[in-house]
């Protein structure tokens, strides 16, 4: 991997040297734009952040853009403490985050593996009517959950899976199939077929081709899919509320909802602290997976 990275860095250097005067200008403009969008994207995050340090009287919409008064010595940490471990009348987000990890990690890994295998056989190791099967799977993405909730609930009861986290894992894996299959299939479609054909001609079996040729070049797509599945399971509210809604067993979105909308008096500061807290694990995943976005992996696999 490190050899690859070096290669990548080098090619990056080459990139920026390409062109003469105009291109330097272009690089500058590119950075200006990137920073501009950075600021735009961060505006709501700024409001979340400053409000999370405000006391109850200051945490009001009219003061959204203002820093907490008494900055920075009098910033209150009460909101963060309350959101993490719960205060009287404020549900705790912290323990719910732990429960959610138990749900999200297995479900996103299983989904990604399943999607990768499906995508592979639907694009590069095809069988008759593969497109029809793909359509069949893909259409599942559009199921209107709310309209089928009662039969779904009955189905889950009939299956008699332990309620709470195991049920949620099953549902996220099942309803993740269409989208993960879609992403992998379309990614593999964009990969030159020669790679796989070559292995096939060599007489390698399906699983071997998948394992030694396809999987190594799938990293960017795994990143995309894991990000998706992790996020959607982490942020799912609909299944959580139907299948694990008890405040002491529910995942983090239940705690957040109870925090943000359960009370008669909304504690904005604590809600926003909770919102940021609940987003942190997902952010960690983005940062951890983000580095595998490095290009040139294809080239590596061809050469290697």
């Amino acid at each position: 991997m490190s050899a690859l990275e070096t290669q990548v860095v080098q090619s990056g250097v080459v990139d920026s040297r390409v062109g003469k005067h105009g291109f330097q200008w272009g690089t500058f403009l590119r950075h200006v734009l990137l920073i501009f969008f950075l600021v735009v994207v961060l505006l709501p995050v700024y409001v979340l952040l400053v409000t999370s340090f405000k006391g109850i009287t200051e945490a009001q919409p009219a003061r959204a853009w203002l820093l907490p008064s008494g900055w920075p010595w009098e910033w209150t940490l009460e909101n963060w403490k309350g959101a993490w471990s719960g205060l009287p009348g404020i549900p705790a987000v912290g323990p719910a985050m732990g429960r959610t990890l138990l749900l999200v990690i297995p479900s996103s890994i299983i989904s990604a593996m399943l999607g990768s295998m499906n995508g592979f056989v639907l694009s590069r190791w095809r069988f008759p009517h593969a497109n029809l099967v793909f359509t069949f799977l893909l259409f599942g993405m559009f199921i209107p959950y709310q309209a089928v909730m009662v039969p779904l609930y009955k189905l889950v009861m009939w299956l008699d899976i332990p309620s709470g986290i195991p049920t949620l894992i099953l549902l996220h894996v099942v309803y993740g199939i269409p989208i993960t299959t879609l992403i992998f299939r379309n990614y593999y479609e964009s990969v030159p077929s020669e790679l796989i054909e070559a292995s096939r001609v060599d007489g390698a079996g399906m699983m071997r081709t998948y394992w030694s040729v396809v999987l190594p070049i799938s990293v960017p797509s795994f990143v995309v899919v894991l990000i998706w599945q992790f996020t959607s399971a982490w942020n799912d509210f609909l299944f959580a509320v139907f299948f694990a809604s008890s405040p002491s067993q529910g995942p983090v979105t239940i705690a957040l909802r109870n925090l943000a909308q359960g009370a008669q008096l909304t504690n904005y500061g604590a809600s926003m602290a909770g919102a940021l807290l609940a987003s942190l694990p997902t952010l960690v995943v983005y940062i951890a997976l983000g580095k595998y976005f490095i290009g040139g992996l294809m080239a590596g696999s061809v050469k290697g």
């Binding site: 709310q146 909730m149 009662v150 239940i254 909802r257 909308q261």
Partner: peptide, 19 residues
């Protein structure tokens, strides 16, 4: 054993209960 969830103000409590 509390199986409830936030309901008023956009919560899904009533829908969950109905289901």
């Amino acid at each position: 054993v509390n199986g409830g969830t936030a309901a008023g103000q956009g919560g899904s409590g009533k829908e969950v209960l109905q289901t």
